[in-house]
Design a binder for these strands. Structure first.
Lengths: 157, 157
DNA sequence: CAAGATTGAGCTCTCAATCTTG
DNA sequence: CAAGATTGAGAGCTCAATCTTG
């Protein structure tokens, strides 16, 4: 990444980049604040519940969960600790592989997610989709997918 | 934000949203990791130096700096503490208003920024601009600006 | 020894309380 | 009392070290 002789961004690039740079700071916070205000739930907890709810048997290995949410294994351990304490998730030893563990969504966890979902959806609509012209949807998806693709495997060891 | 009777995202919306949601997590980390690896500098420090370098007399009030980077005053105090310790920034009492303080970019700070700039630029090009078709630039800018506009005044008290 | 998960230490930020000045 | 800035405490994550099993 230490290339030399690099052209500065063109003015339109500069403007777009500054907007994007600010959006990636501001948007997660706003969504978190919305969810917190409406449901007293953090965005990372919501994300974990969502991932689990979509998985077969509503359960995932800790490591899958961690990479699914782009967190370190250590970070995921803490989050699941909290969710277990709230009764929304259960930790189950993995039979086939004694080293592993599953996180399983409890019924209470599923209901809690159903309860939180509308707030979050409204939040996403209001803060994002409201502003995306249908004609721009494809471009947005294209750009963001590429960004994810080239940046995904960065730190989370 | 607690609206009821809300339509779920359409499939194309869903796909675009998931890509965006992941990008806002993954991109800042990748940029931070790049800058850290190449320059041993954090993204928030880089941002502060940039803001200062663009300001008249290369100085800004702590509060302006905080809102400029979407941080709380407390957070900005810590960052400037670190930059002062590195000799990149100086803290100066404000004459007109005895309550206030300026952060001023030192010459060493300016040189440090010049030194770090190419790495960061390369990083932004590689991880973002590389993937943005010129025809999509305007759409990107439009969407991100709107997102920022509606999400900006959220937490940072 | 390698892989999955957890634990201890530490970093960076926020919130709430405080100090100082207008 | 309000506003600008800082300080103390705490939340939430990462990194490095550790424990356990393959």
């Amino acid at each position: 990444m230490g290339a030399t002789n690099l052209k500065p961004l063109s003015p339109p690039e500069e403007v777009a980049w500054r907007a994007l740079a600010r959006a990636v700071i501001v948007l997660p916070r706003a969504l978190e604040a919305d969810l917190m205000a409406a449901q007293h739930m953090s965005l990372s907890e919501y994300g974990v519940l969502t991932n689990l709810s979509e998985a077969p048997y509503r359960r995932l290995r800790m490591s899958e969960l961690a990479s699914g949410r782009n967190l370190t294994p250590a970070g995921m351990t803490r989050i699941v600790d909290r969710l277990v304490a709230e009764g929304l998730v259960e930790r189950i030893k993995c039979e086939e592989d004694g080293r592993g563990a599953f996180a399983v969504l409890t019924d209470a966890g599923f209901r809690r997610l159903e309860e939180a979902y509308p707030s979050h959806l409204a939040s996403v609509r209001a803060r994002v989709m409201e502003h995306v012209d249908p004609g721009d949807l494809a471009a947005l998806e294209r750009i963001m997918s590429k960004i994810v693709e080239t940046s995904e495997d960065c730190p989370q060891k």
